[in-house]
Design a binder for these strands. Structure first.
Lengths: 196, 196
DNA sequence: AGTAACTCGAACAGTGGTGTTCGACAAGAG
DNA sequence: CTCTTGTCGAACACCACTGTTCGAGTTACT
């Protein structure tokens, strides 16, 4: 270990700051460092002691969120019928998208361009693999690029979050609607859309 | 007319400001009033003379953009096969979404909540009508709410704009991908996805 | 117990925006 | 031609946020 071990209370505070930041930024992507520090029960100076700048903080927070999401998504069973596997994956992904949507906005204009996609790389390949397998088995369409299909799935989930935010959709129905829409969108031309 | 006629040069400047605002905000949603005034070839004071606050300016700009879009969309032929009509509508809508995407972001955190949806009302009903007709004719699915289908279509278009922005998609292919995806997503369960 | 690491609040400087005021000046309308 | 309306730049007050400094106090390691 090149970096010296931080003292116990310092580690505790860092964790508290990151947690508070996720909480605050989820409510308001423009939350100030003052708000976050206060929410963490910590002085603003302490925050800057651990994170040199707001951008550094956001990077750490985003990384933490991604790692948490990865852990959840890693437990999803992706074997068997690709359509059923995708349904399970959407069910899990959806909650993450819904929770961290606002945080993504905060990251978008604070982190250097490309950094977000870089951190999203691992979750991405999981979806890509599943889609590739579905295409090989003939249940997903091959007339559109895989990257487009991944993007479309993301778009629909983000759209659902917006609809909820506007009170035009209740959270309990979201997952059902999303899977119905995505499964249809992924169906190869000429083949029938699977019944829910 | 209750409001007195503005002088000719004032009207000219107002138009110039609105045009410049659309231009600047399309590049950067956080463009300042100084930038906009400069781009309009006008003093900052003049801008505030016509628009009491930044929010008022944004409202006017957004309204102007919507009206322009409405004019373009009004000329689209929505008769005949609903799927072909939807294809034509997407083709036209897509260019608008792509151009005004950034402006929407600017409006989102400057206009009061609900105001954006309020201004989008007219374009909305056009899409809703077409979808309703497609459902009645049995070519669009009825197992999901119309409002959800409208939202999904919007989401996919916005997603396409993001993909272009990240250099993962070229603008010429966008319309094709979007229509292929949306038409599949709108297909009733059990019925075959239309071939492109 | 002693020392190094950490925390805290208050205060400061710097930045970048919004909205206003002033007085001189230009341009359209009648 | 005259008068109203509009324009302009510079300067100002204001606000919210970022990031830093200071000195005094507190907490954890050994």
């Amino acid at each position: 270990m090149v970096t010296k071990e931080k003292r116990a209370d310092a580690q505790r505070n860092i964790a508290a700051i990151v947690d508070a930041a996720i909480d605050c930024l989820s409510r308001d992507p423009n939350a100030s460092t003052s708000e976050i520090a206060k929410a963490a029960g910590v002085g603003r100076v302490t925050l800057y002691g651990h994170f040199p700048s707001r951008a550094d903080l956001l990077d750490a927070v985003f990384l933490h969120a991604i790692e948490g999401g990865e852990a959840a998504l890693g437990q999803v069973d992706l074997t068997g019928d690709p359509r059923e596997a995708l349904t399970r994956l959407i069910e899990s992904s959806w909650h993450l998208v819904d929770r961290f949507r606002s945080l993504l906005v905060a990251a978008q204009d604070a982190l250097p361009p490309g950094r977000i996609r870089e951190l999203h790389a691992d979750p991405m390949v999981r979806v890509e693999r599943l889609i590739e397998r579905g295409r090989a088995e003939g249940v997903f369409r091959t007339d559109l690029p895989t990257s487009w299909l991944v993007g479309a799935m993301h778009s629909v989930m983000h759209g659902a979050a917006d609809e909820i935010n506007a009170n035009r959709l209740t959270p309990d129905k979201a997952a059902t609607y999303i899977t119905a829409t995505v499964l249809a969108a992924f169906t190869p031309p000429g083949k029938p859309v699977p019944a829910s």
